[in-house]
Structure formats: C-alpha cells, structure tokens
Measured scan of single mutants.
Amino acid sequence: KLLSSIEQACDICRLKKLKCSKEKPKCAKCLKNNWECRYSPKTKRSPLTRAHLTEVESRLERLE
C-alpha cells in the first residue's frame, strides 16, 4: 500500500492505542462500548529543516 492511502484509526482508538477496525460511521470498538466515534483530519507533519537536523546532530555528539 502507498503511504498516502493508509487509513487512520478513529480518535479514541488512537488515543487509547487500540486496534481500530476503521469502519465508518462507527468502528467496532466504539460501537461495542457506545463511545462517540470521530475521525479527525490527518495532520500534516512539517518537513525537517536543516537547522533542526544540525541541532539534533550536535546534541547527539555531546551525549556520545
């Protein structure tokens, strides 16, 4: 599967780190437990900047 097509777990399953069936409108866990089942939009991760990478590398060197 391509990364862009990976389905996201519902908010509660993601928060509780449960295996989500990803069914809509309610996944199996939410249906069974009568929880409100919501699927928040995916958040875009910002790409690493060179400055951040350099900072992490220098912190790693100090720890070694």
Results as ranks from 00 to 15, higher is better:
1 K>R: 11
1 K>E: 03
2 L>M: 15
2 L>F: 08
2 L>H: 14
2 L>P: 15
3 L>E: 15
3 L>A: 14
3 L>H: 11
3 L>S: 10
3 L>R: 09
3 L>G: 13
4 S>N: 10
4 S>W: 09
4 S>E: 13
4 S>R: 07
4 S>F: 13
5 S>H: 12
5 S>L: 12
5 S>G: 11
6 I>A: 12
6 I>N: 10
6 I>W: 09
6 I>L: 10
7 E>Q: 10
7 E>D: 11
7 E>V: 10
7 E>L: 12
7 E>R: 07
8 Q>F: 15
8 Q>G: 06
8 Q>C: 04
8 Q>N: 10
9 A>G: 10
10 C>Y: 04
10 C>L: 00
11 D>K: 00
11 D>N: 04
12 I>Y: 15
12 I>S: 07
12 I>L: 11
12 I>N: 09
12 I>A: 11
12 I>E: 12
13 C>V: 07
13 C>F: 00
14 R>T: 06
14 R>M: 03
14 R>F: 01
14 R>V: 01
15 L>Y: 15
16 K>L: 01
16 K>H: 02
16 K>C: 07
17 K>P: 02
17 K>V: 04
17 K>A: 05
18 L>N: 12
18 L>W: 10
18 L>E: 00
18 L>K: 04
19 K>H: 06
20 C>F: 07
20 C>Q: 04
21 S>V: 02
22 K>R: 10
23 E>M: 11
23 E>K: 10
24 K>H: 13
24 K>A: 14
25 P>H: 01
25 P>D: 03
25 P>W: 02
26 K>I: 15
27 C>P: 07
28 A>Y: 11
28 A>P: 02
28 A>L: 13
28 A>F: 10
29 K>Q: 07
29 K>C: 08
29 K>E: 00
29 K>T: 08
30 C>T: 07
30 C>E: 05
30 C>N: 08
30 C>I: 07
31 L>A: 15
31 L>E: 13
31 L>V: 13
31 L>T: 12
32 K>T: 12
32 K>L: 07
32 K>N: 11
32 K>H: 09
32 K>A: 09
33 N>D: 08
33 N>S: 15
34 N>S: 11
34 N>A: 12
34 N>H: 11
35 W>A: 15
35 W>Y: 14
35 W>F: 13
35 W>G: 13
36 E>W: 04
37 C>Q: 09
37 C>W: 02
37 C>R: 04
37 C>P: 02
37 C>I: 03
38 R>E: 15
38 R>Y: 15
38 R>S: 13
39 Y>W: 07
39 Y>G: 04
39 Y>R: 05
39 Y>Q: 07
39 Y>H: 07
40 S>C: 03
40 S>D: 02
40 S>I: 05
41 P>I: 03
41 P>V: 07
42 K>Y: 12
42 K>R: 13
42 K>C: 07
43 T>R: 08
43 T>Y: 00
43 T>G: 09
44 K>G: 01
44 K>C: 09
44 K>E: 05
44 K>L: 14
44 K>I: 15
44 K>N: 08
44 K>A: 12
45 R>E: 08
45 R>K: 07
45 R>H: 03
45 R>M: 00
46 S>L: 00
46 S>I: 03
46 S>N: 01
46 S>G: 01
48 L>I: 07
49 T>W: 05
50 R>C: 00
50 R>Q: 05
50 R>I: 04
50 R>E: 06
50 R>D: 06
51 A>F: 11
51 A>K: 11
51 A>W: 04
51 A>Y: 08
52 H>I: 04
52 H>S: 07
53 L>H: 00
53 L>F: 03
53 L>W: 06
53 L>S: 02
53 L>Y: 04
54 T>F: 05
54 T>E: 09
54 T>K: 04
54 T>G: 07
54 T>M: 08
56 V>G: 02
56 V>W: 04
56 V>N: 01
57 E>N: 01
57 E>G: 00
57 E>F: 08
58 S>E: 15
58 S>P: 04
58 S>H: 14
58 S>Y: 14
58 S>M: 13
58 S>F: 14
59 R>Y: 03
59 R>M: 07
59 R>S: 08
59 R>P: 03
59 R>C: 04
60 L>Q: 03
60 L>G: 05
61 E>G: 14
61 E>D: 13
62 R>V: 14
62 R>W: 05
62 R>M: 13
62 R>Y: 04
62 R>I: 13
63 L>F: 12
63 L>S: 03
64 E>D: 09
64 E>F: 02
64 E>S: 12
64 E>K: 08
